[in-house]
């Protein structure tokens, strides 16, 4: 193990490189979560629709994603899709992560949508609201609020999963840490440093989710 003074010196000495890497990690995470929410909502709606075939499509998507390792999905998108048309590395990684997060987010949304009392939909419909309007105005806002705690969890997983983008040579946090570590024959120090960065990012993310949860909880007070 490195001494504390050595760890601290290396930490402060490498901030420039790590800040850049952290920004890339954040970009990857932000894109993959935002796109993942859109994908997730889309497949959750397919799943709860009355059309069976659409439900099956959603099932297959979730099964494929949950049934294969993320690193395999990233490689398939990186090597496979890039062979068909040119996909910038960033987008190969971001889309693979989004595609992956989307399946878990779809399951979160499906669960919370189905957890809303059916009477809410009936009340909305009895007021003359079409189903799509009732979903948008009545069901989804409530489902989204209930989804926040598990979503926050998924965001944290998504943030840490972005480290796998290192394997398609994205210079995000993990990649920078291992590269610097082996270049300086000092792996452990850099791994500890990168752990600190991840901990800080997760702390910020947790704080944001908690704030958002509190803001949406007004109606319970």
């Amino acid at each position: 193990m490195p001494s504390f003074s050595h760890f601290f010196e290396t930490l402060t000495g490498s901030t420039n490189v790590f800040i850049d890497a952290m920004l890339l990690t954040l970009e990857l995470t932000a894109v993959s979560i935002l796109v993942g929410i859109v994908i997730g909502l889309f497949f959750a709606l397919l799943k709860i629709s009355n059309v069976k075939v659409l439900g099956y499509i959603s099932d297959i998507y979730v099964y494929l994603v949950r049934g294969t390792p993320l690193i395999v999905q990233i490689f398939i998108l990186y090597f496979g899709i890039s062979g068909i048309f040119l996909l910038p590395d960033f987008w190969a990684a971001a889309l693979a992560l989004a595609f992956h997060n989307g399946a878990y987010i779809a399951e979160i949304f499906r669960g919370t949508i189905q957890s809303i009392d059916q009477g809410q939909m009936e009340a909305a419909r009895s007021l003359g609201m079409p189903k799509s309007l009732a979903l948008r105005r009545i069901i989804l806002p409530q489902a989204f609020r209930r989804a926040l705690p598990p979503l926050g969890n998924q965001f944290i997983i998504g943030l840490k999963d972005s480290s796998l983008a290192a394997f398609i040579s994205m210079n995000e946090l993990f990649n920078v840490a291992t590269t610097l570590g082996s270049n300086n024959f000092d792996e452990m120090t850099y791994l500890l440093i990168v752990a600190v960065y991840y901990l800080i990012l997760v702390a910020i993310l947790t704080l944001l989710v908690n704030l958002f949860e509190k803001k949406l909880a007004v109606s319970d007070r």
Binding site: D117, E122, A123, R145, S219
Partner: peptide, 9 residues
């Protein structure tokens, strides 16, 4: 409705 079904949000 029996259980009111006001929109809680």
């Amino acid at each position: 409705f029996q259980h009111f079904q006001l929109f809680p949000h």
